[in-house]
């Protein structure tokens, strides 16, 4: 366990090393929040659409900007780089389980994002645009659980992209395709409650909603009772399925690597 902790800390420090990057990233994120607030102001105005007012959408926007930091999908970049340089052979020989090493590193990055991006972005946005606390205590607890699901699912998706590059030797195609699906079905911009049919039903069956819509909707108390239980059940199902896929592919990939001689 201590070795994974080391990877976590190393990854955190590595990311924190470039502080100019951090500042510009915060400004970038704030610009994005500002743009989306302006868009929702234009769309909803002072009234409400389907019971959702401008203020609620602002909270939704800020939550999704924050959620972005917890998406671990980007980890495929690290694996891809190490696969290209051949360093992956060294990683596999280490007395640690490689998938967990990748998870530890991604969590280190997420922790760094939380401290240096999520916190300042939420504080500044809340001060400028306003921000609502969780709708209830149970909504807060639900959010924490949804966040956990988001991290696990995004980890599994990112890791699947990385593993496919063992065969296709590039992550380019899958990352673009998955990126597109995430943009559309995560609800990060347009919440699923505004989706027309059949798009809403499709989105509710896919794992991408957990990367944006579900945590935010849970926080806001828009997802409660049976709906919430069913959604979480779908999430857990996806989580298990995707993680099993990564395990299957990982076993194949390592044997592939052995055959190729690393």
């Amino acid at each position: 366990m201590t070795s994974y902790h080391t990877y976590f800390r190393k990854s955190f420090k590595k990311n924190a090393a470039y502080r100019t990057t951090v500042w510009l990233q915060i400004v970038s994120s704030l610009i994005q929040v500002g743009i989306q607030v302006a868009v929702w102001t234009a769309l909803i105005g002072n009234g409400a659409v389907d019971g959702i007012g401008r203020d609620q959408m602002i909270t939704y926007v800020i939550l999704n900007a924050a959620m972005y930091a917890f998406r671990l999908t980007g980890l495929y970049n690290d694996v891809d780089a190490r696969l290209r340089s051949g360093d992956i052979a060294i990683d596999i020989l280490r007395p640690v389980h490689y998938p967990l090493l990748v998870l530890a590193e991604s969590l280190g990055r997420a922790a760094y994002h939380f401290v240096f991006m999520v916190v300042p972005i939420v504080i500044v946005s809340a001060a400028v645009f306003g921000f609502s606390a969780p709708a209830s205590v149970s909504a807060g607890i639900g959010f924490v659980f949804a966040l956990l699901l988001a991290m696990l699912i995004s980890y599994a998706i990112g890791y699947l992209i990385a593993l496919l590059s063992f065969w296709f030797l590039t992550t380019f195609h899958f990352s673009w395709a998955i990126g597109g699906l995430t943009t559309l079905f995560s609800g990060a911009f347009l919440p699923l409650w505004f989706f027309p049919e059949p798009w809403a039903s499709i989105a509710r069956m896919l794992p991408f909603q957990f990367l944006g819509f579900v945590p935010a909707a849970t926080w806001m108390g828009q997802l409660t009772g049976t709906d919430l239980v069913v959604t979480f059940a779908v999430g857990i199902l996806w989580c298990v399925t995707l993680l099993m896929c990564t395990r299957l592919l990982w076993n194949r990939a390592t044997s592939q690597l052995v055959v190729q001689g690393g």
Partner: peptide, 21 residues
């Protein structure tokens, strides 16, 4: 194709938004 899917998604989001609003 992958890039068309990637950018197509951003168009779809705009389209879905304007279906509603």
């Amino acid at each position: 194709f992958a890039q068309i899917l990637g950018y197509g998604a951003t168009y779809l989001v705009l389209w879905l938004t304007l279906q509603k609003f």
